[in-house]
Amino acid sequence: MQVRAVAKDIGIPPRKMRLVTNAVKGLRVSEALAVLQFLPNGGAQPVSKVVASAAANAENNYNLDPDNLYILNITADDGFRIKRVKPRSHGRAARILRRYCHVTVVVSDDPADRR
């Protein structure tokens, strides 16, 4: 059975978050949490929380064993952008985009889903 968890509006750009999500894609949940604990990237903590939330959803809502779960799919999608203006010389302006992302984790315990 596939169970998912979503974290929205994380203040890290999706491009940087994908470095973290690609490191744990396909791993068991326990292994992924161990890897995320020692990653130096700033996105490791929010991804760790989402993975733990997906495992808790599977355990509490569907009575699945958390030791048998693995990450089927994990994505970092583009969220909203805060647009700002920074003054530059000679009366010009430069645009600043502060990017946010949404992280979706899908965990499963069925070996047939791994394909």
Rank of each mutant, 00 (worst) to 15 (best):
A5C: 08
V6K: 13
A7H: 11
D9T: 05
I10H: 13
I10E: 05
G11T: 05
G11Q: 15
I12H: 04
I12K: 11
I12R: 12
R15S: 07
R18G: 02
R18D: 10
L19C: 08
V20S: 13
V20I: 14
T21R: 11
T21W: 04
K25W: 00
K25T: 06
G26P: 09
L27H: 08
S30V: 12
S30Q: 15
E31Q: 15
E31R: 13
A32F: 06
L33W: 05
L33Q: 14
A34V: 03
V35L: 14
L36R: 04
F38I: 13
L39T: 09
N41H: 15
G42Y: 11
G43F: 06
G43E: 12
Q45S: 14
P46D: 10
P46G: 04
P46Y: 10
P46R: 02
V47L: 14
S48H: 07
S48P: 03
V51C: 09
V51Y: 07
A52K: 09
A52C: 06
A54H: 05
A55N: 07
A56H: 08
A58F: 06
A58C: 12
A58D: 14
E59V: 00
E59R: 04
N61K: 13
N63D: 15
D65I: 00
D67I: 03
N68E: 15
N68Y: 10
L69E: 08
Y70P: 08
Y70L: 01
I71V: 11
I71E: 04
N73E: 13
I74M: 07
I74A: 06
T75D: 05
D78P: 00
D78T: 02
F80H: 14
R81Q: 12
I82L: 15
I82P: 01
K83Q: 10
V85N: 08
V85Q: 07
K86I: 04
P87A: 13
P87W: 04
R88Q: 11
R88G: 05
R88P: 00
R88E: 04
H90P: 00
R92A: 10
A93C: 05
R95F: 09
I96M: 08
I96L: 15
L97D: 11
L97P: 00
L97R: 14
R98C: 00
R98A: 04
R98F: 07
R99H: 11
R99D: 07
R99I: 03
C101W: 02
V103Y: 03
T104P: 01
T104I: 02
T104C: 00
V105L: 02
V105Y: 02
V105P: 01
V106F: 01
V106E: 05
V107Y: 05
V107W: 11
S108H: 09
S108Q: 04
S108V: 01
D110C: 05
P111Y: 07
A112I: 14
R114Q: 13
R114P: 07
